[in-house]
Design a protein around this nucleic acid. Structure first.
Lengths: 339, 339
DNA sequence: TTGTAAGCGTTATCAG
DNA sequence: CTGATAACGCTTACAA
């Protein structure tokens, strides 16, 4: 079943020309007499010639591929960025090669080395757990681009969103609806985005003259279960609150289930805001008010940007804003109704 | 910034040996005198030598990579299979190279050719829209494995789940709870799995002596919006039903929102069953009863199987069963309460 | 045990 | 315009 691959050599012999001529025709590098061109072209077809990528790349040094490492390919958040990258690259000769970092510095490092070893022309990191110095060092070896993380020393290669602003927007929205006892469920402990969103929350509170109550800040980890448990516990402690701002949509779902279990309605009894605007949150019941991250567009722009850099164009890193999407999980506070 | 890559040649010169000796030490192919070994090893370290994958692969013909093409990497369903594949491969020297088919034969074909061109050692298709003959032809060029689709002529390379049984299980569950007016929202039109699930639904109905009512079958496409719209319309037509079985979890969410909009409770007024058991459905409100597909395990087994085949082990393709996960979106029919 | 040299399949650089 | 021939970086007979 395994027919040996036909090489440029056999084509040359079949067409009665030299291998250089064949190469020229394949790549359109130079003019070739009409008759030879014809002979070669039919030989190419007849033998079903397929160029060998490895041999090509070995010479040119360009693999026409771009490595993409996401913390987690499964996460819908990164998946959407990846979709954008893929779509943008579809029109070009470049191929994305995907890999996961699994939120672990070891795995990430491994994935990076593996892709460099495979001679990808550039590397895009969708989130990263490696220390700045290490990323800088890698950046010296290969064109490196990072999404979701500012690396000092290579700021112009980083695309970050203003998560602080997102947290602020979400919280201010709740405040404007009259809420003052607003719970915040944080993201994974040390993660920068999570910290920024918390800061946004605090800042909005402060600007509205609402004292910060640490008891209303619940430690989460971006997963449904933890948020669910935390909110359950909060309610059992009889704490008083009228709104919840979760640091991502998944935790908002967890919180929503806790409220459901305790017979609290959303938004009549408790208003709920998420973060990310994952596909699907528009179809939660009720549809979730959340902070939209333009992930797909980011993916497209990022890929485009990388390509430009590879073409030595020296473009500006694109910039994106977060925006609040008001749906049906938030409503004006009904005074007199609280726990 | 671009230091030229150090080659085995420079290492050899630095260590005062020949390139073959260096190669031998790197690959452990043969014994080398202790002193030379030491010299080479320090040279390797000092120069920071990194072997060139392309040159290696050009010779060996093995790229130590496995191409994975999913209809859609973003779909949580396939993403979970991919996660399984990745995890299994993590322990080996093999690298997965991911790509999307975007539910289009053209894109899929393109992705396949691209990966073959890149000399992946095997190809895993997670779903496929190409005709059988084409897949067979590809299978002649490279070890090919297909998940979610039976290709005649290469059955032993296909891993399929019994979707009929899943549909049957879901429907029977509802019947056992006393429901007789059960709506089914189908998956994308021509897709085999969707057809099988519908057949399972019909078969369960028949076995219970419940006449099949085509008006209760709603045409879906696996997306929330369509299911939402279809159920809204159904309710406005004043059709009578007490349960809904959606062909996937996303459509179940869409249906759930429609019920929510009309003030119908789940499961008190209408029972709801999904399909897939995507991460997150356990945290819908209420947690969704659904048919579990062991996607992660499938990914792991599949990768393991591919590796074995590559090692000429001739293993049996693993087999998996679907199972019903009963959560809180279904309950016994309250007689007298219906629309 | 070690080195020389012949590939692997292309592209690039020369002369002609 | 075209054809030798030298790379590309590495592995692997084949000698020594």
């Amino acid at each position: 079943m395994k027919k040996r691959n036909v090489t440029i050599n056999e084509v040359a012999r079949a067409a009665g020309v030299s291998i250089s001529t064949v190469s020229r025709i394949i790549n359109g590098t130079a003019f070739v007499a009409e008759d030879k061109r014809l002979a070669v072209e039919t030989a190419l077809k007849d033998l079903g010639f397929q160029p060998n990528y490895l041999a090509r790349t070995l010479i040119s040094g360009k693999s026409m591929s771009i490595g993409v490492i996401a913390e987690d390919i499964v996460s819908p958040y990164y998946a959407d960025v990846i979709r954008g990258i893929e779509h943008q690259l579809l029109e070009t000769d470049y191929q994305p090669i995907l890999n996961s970092g699994h939120w672990s510095a070891t795995h990430e490092k491994r994935a990076i080395e593996s892709l460099i070893y495979r001679k990808v022309d550039a590397l895009i990191l969708l989130g990263s757990t490696l220390p700045d110095e290490e990323l800088l060092e890698i950046s010296g070896r290969i064109p490196l681009f990072v999404f979701g993380r500012k690396v000092t020393g290579m700021e112009e290669r980083c695309l970050v969103l203003n998560q602080f602003q997102g947290g602020y927007l979400a919280t201010r929205h709740l405040i404007e609806l009259g809420h003052r006892e607003i719970v915040h469920i944080t993201g994974a402990n040390m993660q920068v985005d999570a910290q920024e969103r918390l800061r946004g929350y605090q800042s909005a509170l402060e600007d509205a003259g609402i004292p910060f109550n640490p008891k209303l800040v619940l430690q989460g980890d971006y997963l449904e279960r933890t948020a669910y448990l935390a909110v359950m516990q909060l309610m059992e402690s009889l704490a008083s609150f009228t709104a919840i701002f979760a640091s991502n949509d998944q935790m908002a779902a967890g919180a929503r289930l806790a409220l459901y279990r305790k017979g609290l309605r959303v938004p009549e009894d408790v208003s709920l805001v998420g973060f990310d605007d994952l596909p699907g949150t528009a179809f939660m019941s009720p549809p979730l008010t959340t902070v939209h991250q333009p992930t797909y567009e980011i993916g497209k722009s990022l890929a485009d940007h990388v390509l430009r850099v590879l073409q030595e164009e020296n473009p500006q890193m694109p910039h994106f804003e977060l925006s609040l999407v008001v749906r049906e999980s938030t409503s004006r506070l009904h005074y007199g109704l609280r726990r």
